[in-house]
């Protein structure tokens, strides 16, 4: 009906819709979580899932990778995991008299970093550097990672024994952070009844090209200057809020905009809306700020602070 509402790349939209359908068949009752994961995918970002064990974090990551049809690797982070275990090693080949690079599990389209906070900080930072740069350098040689490249990291908030919680600066690398939550009652009951075993492994429903097209499309979403100013006001407010010790960085703000654009694109809109920003404010910003009242769960308080800030910032009209 409206020219500005028409979005380009119908085939990419169809691909994303198919991905959503297929994932939803496996992860049932979690449509909002799936949507957020797809937003992270389309905005070419990374995803941090924080929740207690056994609620389907890994399943989500694996299913997403399988459905999209990319290469999938799962790395179980442990306290003895070394950076080389991630990025790979150079092996000396006596026959050729030169070193050969043996790529590590990071060289895949989808990397599930399970329980990321169990690995020592050195390993964590190797992963996060790779996420930021999209290259890894070993012995002075840079190796480009796969395209698309997406890290889905999980973190267990309650078990803090023998763990190394991610520093805030590193959480900043993740575009979105989300919680799975328990399955809703009927779904859980069905799972207990054996539904999980019955489900077949999902087939790939789209190509990596379609994902790249979607990522490109999301970048073309129009951002009205008033909305950019609004986003800036919100980000700025996080820095001045008395309940916040450390506000959102500029990089955090950019990531938020990218995620919001991805969401708008997935909604087949060629332009950003206020809701895109507001709905993604908590998943995109909460893990980037440090609340000053940190007695209980830091991220929960931070999320509340973000909600508060959004609720007190006037929207453009």
């Amino acid at each position: 009906m409206n020219s500005v509402l028409q979005a380009p790349r119908p085939e990419a939209h169809a691909a994303i819709a198919a991905v959503r359908r297929s994932v939803a068949e496996v992860i049932r009752g979690k449509d909002d979580v799936i949507d957020l994961a797809l937003v992270a995918l389309v905005s070419a970002g990374h995803l941090l899932i924080e929740d207690i064990p056994g609620v389907g974090k890994s399943t989500l990551a694996r299913t997403l990778a399988q459905v999209v049809g990319g290469e999938f690797r799962r790395i179980q982070f442990t306290s003895d995991l070394l950076p080389a275990d991630l990025v790979g090693v150079s092996v000396l080949r006596p026959s050729l008299d030169q070193s050969e690079f043996r790529p590590g599990p990071l060289f895949a389209n989808f990397v599930l970093a399970d329980e990321i906070n169990r690995a020592p900080p050195r390993t964590q930072s190797a992963l996060l550097e790779a996420m930021g740069e999209r290259t890894v350098s070993v012995d002075g040689t840079s190796h480009a990672l796969a395209v698309p490249f997406m890290v889905i990291a999980t973190q267990n908030p309650t078990e803090h024994y023998g763990t190394y919680p991610l520093p805030e600066s590193q959480r900043d690398r993740f575009t979105l952070r989300l919680e799975m939550g328990y399955a809703i009652a009927e779904v859980e009951a069905a799972l207990f009844g054996g539904a999980a075993e019955a489900a077949p492994a999902p087939e790939p429903v789209c190509t990596l090209d379609a994902i790249l097209a979607a990522q490109l499309g999301a970048q073309e979403v129009f951002v009205h200057p008033d909305l950019a100013a609004y986003a800036q006001r919100v980000v700025h407010a996080t820095r001045n809020h008395p309940g916040v010790r450390l506000g959102v960085s500029t990089r955090g703000g950019i990531a938020w905009m990218r995620a919001a654009k991805a969401r708008a694109w997935m909604d087949r809109r060629g332009q950003l809306g206020i809701d895109d920003l507001q709905d993604l404010a908590v998943p995109a910003l909460a893990h980037r700020l440090i609340a000053s009242a940190g007695t209980d769960d830091g991220v929960a308080v931070a999320a509340e602070r973000v909600r508060e800030i959004v609720a007190t910032t006037a929207v453009p009209r």
Partner: peptide, 8 residues
Amino acid sequence: YEACRFAP
């Protein structure tokens, strides 16, 4: 309205 308001 939102579509009009925030359109290029």
